[in-house]
C-alpha cells in the first residue's frame, strides 16, 4: 500500500490539538515543556472546557505559555502563580484554574505561596515542572538541583555543606491536609506521556469536584542547560533524577 493511500482524512489517528495555537514554541529542541503544553491542551480539548479554563503562567521558560495554549491566561510575578490562581478561583468558582510553574519559581521564590495555597486547599490545579535547574536565566542552581550536579553557579557540582540538600517539595506538599492529589510523573517516553496525561486529567476533574488542591510534578529534562542532546538528557534524567525523585502517586484521596 502506498503512503498516499494511507494519508487520507478518514485514516487520521493523531493530529495537533485544536487548543494549541499555531505559534512556534520558543522552547529549545526536545524540551519537556512542549510535551506538557500539548498534554494540557489535549486534556482541555477532551473535557470540552476550553472556555472555562484560566491558566496562570509563571516567570521562567514557560512565561510565554499564554501564546501557545488558546485559553484565558494571567501572568504572575515570580513565584506568585498560586496566589493569583487562588484569587481567580475564588472570583470564578465555576472555572478551572491551572497554575503552571517551574522549579525555580515554585520551589524557591514561591515556596510560601505554594505551601499556603495547598494548605488552604484551594480548588486549583498546580503543574510543577522540575528540571533541577534555572532554565531561562542560564542554568543556575535551583533548590531541586541534585548533589554533585554541575550548574553555572555550582561549577564543581552541588555540595551539601555549601549549597544544602535538594528539596523534595512534592513530598512536603503531600503532607498538607488541603491537597487531594499529589503525583510525580515524567514525559520522556510514550508510556510516561500517557500516564502524565491521565494525571493531568484527574487533577482537572478533582478541581470540578471541589476536593482540594491537585499537584502534578513532572520531572523534566533541560538539555540546553545540562549541556546534552535531548536524547542524552532524557537518559541522564532516567538514570540520575528518578532515583532521587521516584515516580508515582504520593497521595490520592
Amino acid at each position: 500500500m502506498d503512503v498516499k493511500d494511507i494519508i487520507k482524512p478518514e485514516n487520521l489517528v493523531y493530529s495537533k490539538s485544536k487548543v494549541l495555537t499555531d505559534t512556534i514554541m520558543h522552547y529549545c529542541p526536545g524540551c519537556s515543556h512542549g510535551v506538557v503544553h500539548k498534554l494540557l491542551a489535549e486534556v482541555i480539548e477532551e473535557m470540552g472546557i476550553q472556555d472555562k479554563t484560566i491558566g496562570v503562567s509563571p516567570v521562567g521558560c514557560a512565561v510565554f505559555a499564554y501564546k501557545y495554549i488558546n485559553i484565558d491566561w494571567q501572568q504572575a510575578a515570580h513565584g506568585r502563580a498560586p496566589a493569583l490562581a487562588t484569587a481567580t478561583k475564588r472570583l470564578y468558582p465555576d472555572k478551572y484554574v491551572v497554575a503552571y510553574q517551574g522549579d525555580g519559581d515554585l520551589a524557591s521564590i514561591g515556596t510560601a505561596e505554594i505551601m499556603h495555597a495547598c494548605n488552604r486547599g484551594e480548588n486549583i490545579v498546580v503543574i510543577f515542572i522540575n528540571n533541577a535547574i534555572y532554565g531561562m536565566t542560564g542554568g543556575q542552581m535551583a533548590p531541586t538541583t541534585l548533589l554533585g550536579m554541575k550548574t553555572a553557579t555550582t561549577p564543581y557540582g552541588r555540595r551539601a555543606d555549601l549549597n544544602g540538600y535538594p528539596l523534595k517539595i512534592t513530598e512536603l506538599i503531600a503532607q498538607l491536609e488541603g491537597t487531594c492529589y499529589v503525583t510525580r510523573q515524567s514525559v520522556q517516553n510514550p508510556g510516561s506521556v500517557r500516564k502524565t496525561k491521565k494525571a493531568i486529567r484527574k487533577a482537572l476533574e478533582n478541581s470540578a469536584q471541589k476536593k482540594g488542591t491537585s499537584f502534578v510534578e513532572i520531572v523534566s529534562a533541560c538539555n540546553s542547560n545540562w549541556k546534552m542532546t535531548p536524547v542524552q538528557a532524557n537518559k541522564w534524567m532516567e538514570e540520575n533524577m528518578f532515583p532521587f525523585y521516584p515516580l508515582g502517586d504520593i497521595k490520592d484521596r
Binding site: V3, I6, V13, K16, Y27, G30, V35, V193
Partner: peptide, 27 residues
C-alpha cells in the same frame, strides 16, 4: 519517514513530540 514500509501508525512519535509537528494516519 526513512523506512515508510515499517510504519504501523502506532503514534508513539507524535505522543512524545514536544512541538506537536507529527500527524499520524493508520489503516
Amino acid at each position: 519517514m526513512e523506512n515508510p514500509d515499517n510504519c504501523t501508525g502506532c503514534g508513539n512519535c507524535a505522543t512524545v513530540c514536544p512541538d506537536s509537528v507529527i500527524t499520524v494516519y493508520r489503516v
